[in-house]
Each structure stands twice: as C-alpha cells, then as structure tokens.
Amino acid sequence: MKPNREVGIIGYGAYIPRYRIRADEILRVWKSIDSIHLEEKSVPGLDEDTITMAIEAARNALKRAAIDPQEIGAVWVGSESKPYAVKPTATIVAEALGATPHTNAADWEFACKAGTEAMQAAIGFVGSGMAKYALAIGVDTAQGRPGDQLEYTASAGGAAFIIGPKEESLAYLEGSYSYVSDTPDFFRRPHQYYPQHGHRFTGEPAYFKHTYCAAQHLMEELGYTPRDYAMVVFHQPNSKFPRRVAQRLGFTEEQLKPGFLVEVIGNAYAGSSPLGFAAALDEAQPGDRILLVSFGSGAGSDALTFTATEQIVKNDDTLLRVRDYISRRREIDYGTYCRYRDNLNNH
C-alpha cells in the first residue's frame, strides 16, 4: 500500500547514548545464560530518557532536511518507555524542535514496532495532503529484568524520519505492508516496570511468522525478490532472529550487514529497526532499494520499501551518522549500570 501522492524521507537522524555495558560483564554477575551472541549494549546516562533521545535524533533529522520546523505538520513518537504515563512525549519533543504550536503531536505504542507505525501514519498524513512534512520517531530506553535474558540486549537509542513529498526526498516510498495478529509473546501490564516474555514462544509464532509474512507479501505486491534489494533491515531483538529470517526469505549476509547493529548496541526496542534503517541510509547510494521490516510483540510487523535518490549523498561532514554514535563509547561496569538504570530503586 502507498498513498496517492508519492512521498519519501527528506531527512533522518539517529541517537545512541554514550555508555556501553559488555554482555560478558552482565554474564559475570548473573551467569544466567550459556552463551553470548552479542558484544555489548548501549545504556542511557542519568539525565537521558526517551524524550531527550527523541529530541537529539529529531534535531539531526531536521539538520539533514534543512527545513523550517514550523512546516512540520505532525510530531509522532513511537515508544514503550514514556517518561510520563499521562502527558505526551511528543509535545515536549515538538516544543524543543520549535515545531509548536501549529502542529499535531501524539505518542504511538505497539511494543517494538511503534516507530514504523508512526512512520506509516506520517506517510499517510503527508500522502493525503494533510501536512507538507511529518516527523516520525522510534525510540526507547528498553527495560529488561535484572538477570533475565532480556537484560543482555535491552538497550537505548532511536531514529527520526521526516516524511515529505517524493520530489524532495533522499529515499522515496515504493510501498508498505502490515501483518498483525493477537499473539501474546511479550507484554507489560500497567504499573509494572519490567515486561514478561514467552521465551521460545517469542520465536516461530511471533517474530518469524510476522516478519516473514509482512516482508513476503510486500515483495509479492511490488513484484520484487530479495535480489532486487541492496539492503534489508529487520527488528533486532538478538543476533540470531534477524539472520534467520533474512536467510529464510533469501537475503544474504551482505544485504543484512549495513543495518545490523544489535551486536554492538543491543536491542533499542522501538528504536531498533529505525536505527538499523538509519544506518542503512548512511551507506546507501542513489538507486539502492532498502527493505525495512519491524516487529512489535503482541504482535505485528510493518514492512516498507524505500529507494534512495540522488539526494542521499550529502557531502556535509557535520552531519552525525549512526556509526559516529556507535564509535562514541564509554564502557561501564555492572554496578555503574545499576546506578544509571535506577535498578537499586526498582526492586
């Protein structure tokens, strides 16, 4: 599906916090898993949350787009770690960007696919002519119970995308497809700090079924096969799942590599596939086709196909890329990690 009026991405930006904890440091404390499949994950600092990360990612997107923030008709933030249970994240982000007051602002929620959900809504909003530009952000400070498998991966970060007319875009939309069902693989009840997950149940009936079907249906609809794509980005809850679904669909390791970040930053939940997509855009050349497939527990996947235009190439050394944030790292030990994540107060 795509709107009648053709749209694309006119600017994008990412954010990853500075702190890292290595997976073997978590293993040293908990000894709770047999083997480790990633190096480290990002950790937000004491003064960081979903709002501060969304603001920096969006500022990077605005700088790349070089538009007046007053022209943004919607600021939509997808996350499952809202600093306020009631009070929009999006109004604070919109205010900090200078997009208020003549704009729409809202928060989106669908576990780890809230970011691509906001992107799809922004595509519809701009595609229908209701706004010239719309900003969609996927961002999280992910929660994982200490000692749980999730603690090895639950990280922080996000990416922002400004949707606008195709003729101004650095990558235009060819189509999108969503696939959802009621699958209780992972959830968090109100007032609970940590989510529950279904262990092996999170695999076949949840992640694999939804990502595979969304990707397969979109490619069929567009008449493409994996060979037509330069890059593919999946939601990255761990290093095994995206590799396995890529292989099943017929994608190669080379196509997966540019947006495959989980081994060095972990799983930033709603920020995971958007960050991977931003990293893929950083590497893209004009004409490169990219498949983005998110996954949100509960469960569903959004698949989107974008093709890079001549405007993907920007010779501006001041623009921050995903790899700039990855290489900015300060390693912390488990005790410091507990302090930064406020774990001493959450038990």
Partner: peptide, 15 residues
C-alpha cells in the same frame, strides 16, 4: 537537551 531534575516519582520532570 537533557533532564535537569525531577520532582520525585510523581512530579514534574524538568528538561
């Protein structure tokens, strides 16, 4: 833009 302070777990977060 970062968190400057918060007024406890029930209060305002100041950015």
């Amino acid at each position: 833009t970062r968190r400057l302070r918060e007024y406890g777990p029930e209060g305002l977060i100041v950015y």
